[in-house]
């Protein structure tokens, strides 16, 4: 009987060990990454809105942070098969139905985020332009690949 339980438990244990080794909980990871980008955007938006004065150093720091986070979005690692549901995910099934389209959207965002950081905007006008270019990716991707749940 004991042996039977051990036998039955082995694969479960193996999966548990394996996923711990892989680092993981892709749903939690991708949610944390999205939140982190929200923070970077949150420090930039008031400047774009004109509520806070333009500060080249602060802008560059936030744009660099945003770019760093953007480059961490690895569709295969963060949105693997099997994470379509669970953990309060709001990922749309379209991510898996049209994975090529999703990957293309992520790559566009990465390119725009890199360009915005590389531009090192020195005045408000050029910053607003760079910010608009990169932030339109948020809505564009969420339009198709995210669903609301609450």
């Amino acid at each position: 009987m004991k042996r039977l339980i051990a036998f039955a438990a082995a694969p479960v244990l193996a999966i548990a060990v394996f996923s711990a080794a892989a680092g993981a909980d892709p749903i939690a990871d991708r949610q944390a990454l999205m939140k982190d980008q929200g923070k970077a955007v949150g420090s930039l938006a008031p400047i774009a809105k004109g509520e806070k004065p333009f500060d080249a150093a602060a802008v560059l720091a936030a744009l660099s942070k945003l770019n760093e986070d953007a480059q961490k979005i690895d569709p295969a690692a963060l949105f693997p098969a099997g994470t379509e549901t669970g953990g309060e995910t709001t990922a749309s099934p379209k991510i898996w139905e049209d994975n090529a389209g999703f990957t293309a959207a992520v790559n566009k965002y990465k390119a725009d985020a890199a360009a915005a950081a590389a531009a090192k905007p020195q005045d408000l006008a050029s910053f607003k332009l760079a910010f608009a270019q990169v932030s339109q990716n948020c809505g564009a991707c969420h339009q198709t690949y995210r669903i609301k749940k609450n």
Binding site: M34, G38, K39, V41, G42, A45, K49, S135, C138, G139, A140, C141, H142, Q143, Y145, R146, I147, K148
Partner: peptide, 23 residues
């Protein structure tokens, strides 16, 4: 008003789905 203009919520999530076009 800012969410309608930019798509960003107060905690800087961005509006998605059909609301993207509305924005």
């Amino acid at each position: 008003a800012y969410a309608l203009e930019s798509g960003f919520t107060p905690d800087f999530d961005s509006l998605g789905g059909s609301m993207t076009d509305v924005v």
